[in-house]
């Protein structure tokens, strides 16, 4: 009898600790694309709507504060101090992020931030993201702040072969200007139904950086760093780049 109780106990113990009944580990993948194809760092040549051609040498951004919202409005917030991720186009493994112990439920909306939420900085463990950001050159050391979004490459204007460098480094400007943006993606069909699947696939249309809300002509200003006029426009465009990609159910 004792043996049976112990056995049941162990079984209960295992199941309750390993998946807490109805949570699971899920994966979110980010695919950076232009015109439907994965971008090619260095070699790909692209056109923006201002008839400029450009190539991309470096593309990085910070994803943060991930939340999942159910149809009834119930919100699951992924633990904040673990909710900072750096997506680096040159490192495929960085484009797949794993969230542990997410409720295996049917969600309607995925919310996340691009960059670091100013009200949180540097509290609630945000400081612990410093080493990752630092290794990826996503810190402005002189301003004690994070670079939220970074793209660098070459460009040439219409009908000219001469190429120049461009670089956009977008972050908040002290407490003066908050360039943190939030993204909300709504499910069509089962994209966020975690009872059926454990992969959320996100496509990022990098071309929208130049025209989603504001038209950005690189030649107007090819070096945008702490720029109170242009940085917010690029941040806003960047917040429009993301969409959910339909994936197949895993069970």
């Amino acid at each position: 009898m004792k043996k049976i109780i112990t056995l049941i106990g162990f079984a209960l113990l295992m199941s309750s600790c390993s998946n807490d009944g109805d949570t699971k580990n899920i994966t979110i993948s980010f695919e950076n694309k232009i015109a439907g194809d994965r971008i090619n760092l260095g070699t790909g040549n692209y056109q923006n709507t201002s008839n400029e051609s450009y190539s991309i040498d470096e593309l990085k951004y910070i994803i943060s504060n991930i939340q999942l919202v159910k149809e009834n409005g119930e919100v699951f917030t992924y633990p904040q101090d673990n909710s900072y991720f750096l997506i680096n186009e040159s490192e495929p493994e960085s484009q797949i992020i794993v969230l542990n112990n997410v409720p295996a439920q049917d969600f309607q909306t995925l919310k996340f931030g691009i960059g670091i939420d100013q009200t949180n900085y540097p509290l609630n463990g945000v400081d612990n993201f410093v080493p990752t950001a630092e290794e990826n050159q996503m810190l402005w050391s002189w301003s004690a702040g994070y670079i939220f979004f970074k793209i660098e490459g070459d460009f040439s204007i219409e009908n000219e072969s001469h190429q120049d460098n461009f670089l956009f480094h977008i972050g908040s400007h002290g407490t003066n200007l908050d360039n943190y943006k939030t993204v909300e993606l709504s499910a069509t069909q089962f994209d966020l139904d975690l009872t059926r699947k454990d992969l959320i696939a996100i496509e990022t249309d990098i071309s929208k950086l130049f025209n989603a809300v504001h038209d950005i002509r690189i030649n107007d200003k090819s070096d945008i760093q702490v720029d109170p006029v242009n940085a917010p426009k690029i941040a806003e465009n960047a917040s429009q780049m993301f969409s959910l990609k339909p994936t197949h159910s895993t069970n």
Partner: peptide
């Protein structure tokens, strides 16, 4: 005013090349 919080300040001297020139890592 480059550091908006005291907990964030130390990043500046630690990582600036003409100061401590080190990485937090």
């Amino acid at each position: 005013g480059a550091a908006p919080h005291l907990d964030a300040f130390s990043i500046i001297p630690i990582t600036t090349d003409v100061e401590m020139n080190e990485t937090v890592t």
